[in-house]
Amino acid sequence: MAEMMYWQGILRAHDEEMARDPLVFAMGEDIGVAGGTYKATSGLFAKYGEQRVIDTPISENSYTGIGVGAAMVGARPIVEIMSVNFAWLAMDQLMNNAAKIHYMSGGRIRCPFVMRVPGGTAHQLGAQHSARMEKVFMGISGLRVVTPATPRDAYGLLKSAVRCDDPVVIIEHESMYNLKGEIPDTEFFTPLEGVEVMRQGKDVSIFAYNISVHWALDAAQKLAQEHGIDAEVIDLRALKPMDRAGIAASVRKTHRAIVVEEDEAPVGVGSEVMAILNEECFFELDAAPVRVHALDVPIPYNRRLEKAAIPNAGDVVAAVRKMLGR
């Protein structure tokens, strides 16, 4: 077990998969010679060459489509989009082609296509570099959407995505590439479906994903130390398909639910989890479930305003205390 950073996990997954299969290749803006905006592909260009580590022009929709086409006839592309904000330009190829080809062809053509993309709000990047778009991808039939919260999963989810025969979108986070954590030395695969219990607890279930898992874990620690509340933290991790049974199982234990998301509330991960709670385990609930989420505004540049727009661990603590009346 070695301590590695999130970006190093992603790099290791690329390297192992590219060494194993000559039809795995990577493409994206500045991923080759420059080594990637977050270093996640550094060194690969020298090792695998320009045919397999491709610096693309700034043409998101078409290089995504080239990846999709390559996947349809047997290759396994890993396409990096520099920022999720730019993925809007690739939506046509992603949703009209990647997501639908297997279904439209009656299962005759597979599309083992992987898109990696950092999302989230970083530091004062302004509204056009701060989008959180998981709600868009998870609304599309035919895609798989996963979100690593740890270096281990940044590695393990990419490994799984490359092997999977369906199109997979991996949403990373701008602020997490230097996060440290343990990654086993031997090869492993993080499953593309299912939740993971990050902390066992009995009083309340806090559902989170990607960066909000860390807010939830910080909040749980504070709740235990300062308020005697034992919170369970669940990493949703797979946003599509979402693990309905896993969500219900935790609530059957705690009877209370909070969803924490970095995104604004409407039509999002939180609303989906709320619907699942209603449909799967309504009568298990002792309190109305609550969402902790960003404000419904384009993210402002000013540091104070930006902080005010995005939730944090303190907001999670407050929401739990309010729910439990302690």
């Binding site: 078409s62 489509g65 080239i66 390559a70 996947a71 349809m72 047997g74 592309p77």
Partner: peptide, 9 residues
């Protein structure tokens, strides 16, 4: 782009 993708493979 799909056609270019087949060619890439």
């Amino acid at each position: 782009p799909l056609a270019a993708g087949f060619a890439k493979t």
